[in-house]
Amino acid sequence: MTEYKLVVVGAGGVGKSALTIQLIQNHFVDEYDPTIEDSYRKQVVIDGETCLLDILDTAGQEEYSAMRDQYMRTGEGFLCVFAINNTKSFEDIHHYREQIKRVKDSEDVPMVLVGNKCDLPSRTVDTKQAQDLARSYGIPFIETSAKTRQGVDDAFYTLVREIRKHKEKMSKDGKKKKKKSKTKCVIM
């Protein structure tokens, strides 16, 4: 069974824990209790493949930012979460993405942009803004509501699919490099 290491990042209060708990335990946590770091595991079937999701729910508070490099190193894919009623959390996505790329030393890291709290009427981040940002990053965008469960499975499952595509691409690139290195030079 394939294991996928997913990391949920975003500013404090955007609903990272609520999304994760909704996926794992099928219930909505409405009281806000700032996370330092929590880890969850769940076995699911995605596109006919049974897999184990190892999900790291991270601290959004700035005082825990020193811990970010460590979990970013171990993560295979990242859910970059903002709240649709919090423009600052949307603007912060850029910083999370840049930090992930720096730590992973790669421009090509599996990510999904997630606009959470889409059940709320007080939207300050337009869907088109988020779609445009995701398009500019070359990553999928999904709106979710941890409260109603809308888009929750889709967000995590899409990230797994992005990781699969990335692994497939990397193995193809690896095979191309191996083929090239088999060419021999004969000096007579």
Rank of each mutant, 00 (worst) to 15 (best):
T2K: 10
T2L: 04
E3P: 08
E3G: 04
L6I: 13
V7N: 08
V9F: 14
V9I: 13
G10M: 03
G10S: 06
A11E: 15
G12F: 06
V14Y: 13
G15L: 06
S17Q: 04
A18L: 00
A18Q: 04
A18P: 00
L19C: 12
T20E: 11
I21V: 10
L23F: 13
L23R: 02
L23D: 02
L23V: 04
L23G: 12
I24R: 01
H27V: 07
H27R: 13
V29I: 07
V29A: 06
V29N: 08
D30H: 09
D30L: 08
E31G: 02
E31L: 03
Y32R: 00
Y32A: 00
D33V: 05
D33G: 01
P34S: 00
P34Q: 00
T35L: 00
I36S: 00
E37Y: 03
E37P: 02
S39G: 15
S39N: 04
Y40D: 01
Q43D: 01
Q43R: 04
Q43I: 01
V44L: 02
V45F: 01
I46G: 05
G48W: 05
G48A: 09
T50S: 07
T50R: 02
C51S: 07
L52Y: 05
D54P: 00
D54A: 00
L56A: 01
D57C: 00
A59V: 14
G60R: 02
Q61K: 01
Y64G: 13
S65T: 12
S65P: 15
S65D: 14
A66N: 08
R68M: 14
D69T: 05
D69F: 00
Q70V: 00
M72S: 15
R73Q: 09
T74G: 14
T74R: 05
E76F: 09
G77N: 03
G77Q: 06
L79F: 06
L79Q: 01
L79K: 03
C80A: 06
V81K: 03
F82R: 01
A83L: 02
A83E: 15
N86S: 08
K88E: 15
K88G: 10
D92H: 10
D92A: 10
H95L: 07
H95M: 15
H95P: 05
Y96L: 15
K101F: 08
V103F: 04
V103L: 05
K104Y: 14
K104N: 14
D105R: 04
S106I: 10
E107F: 11
E107D: 13
D108E: 10
P110A: 04
M111F: 12
V112T: 05
V114Y: 01
G115S: 09
K117E: 11
C118R: 10
D119S: 07
D119F: 06
D119N: 10
P121Q: 11
P121F: 10
S122E: 12
T124E: 12
V125I: 11
D126F: 09
T127A: 10
T127W: 07
A130H: 07
Q131Y: 05
Q131C: 13
Q131K: 10
Q131I: 07
Q131T: 13
D132P: 13
D132R: 08
A134G: 13
A134R: 09
G138C: 14
F141C: 10
I142G: 06
S145C: 04
S145L: 02
R149L: 03
R149A: 06
Q150K: 05
Q150W: 08
G151W: 04
D153P: 07
D153I: 06
D154Q: 09
D154C: 07
A155S: 12
A155I: 06
A155L: 05
F156P: 04
F156H: 15
F156I: 13
Y157D: 09
Y157Q: 10
Y157V: 11
T158L: 08
V160Q: 05
E162I: 08
I163V: 07
K165M: 07
H166P: 07
K169F: 13
K172V: 11
K172S: 14
K176N: 07
K176R: 06
K176G: 08
K177S: 13
K177L: 11
K178I: 11
K178F: 14
S181L: 10
K184Q: 14
C185G: 14
V186F: 07
V186W: 11
I187V: 13
M188F: 05
M188E: 15
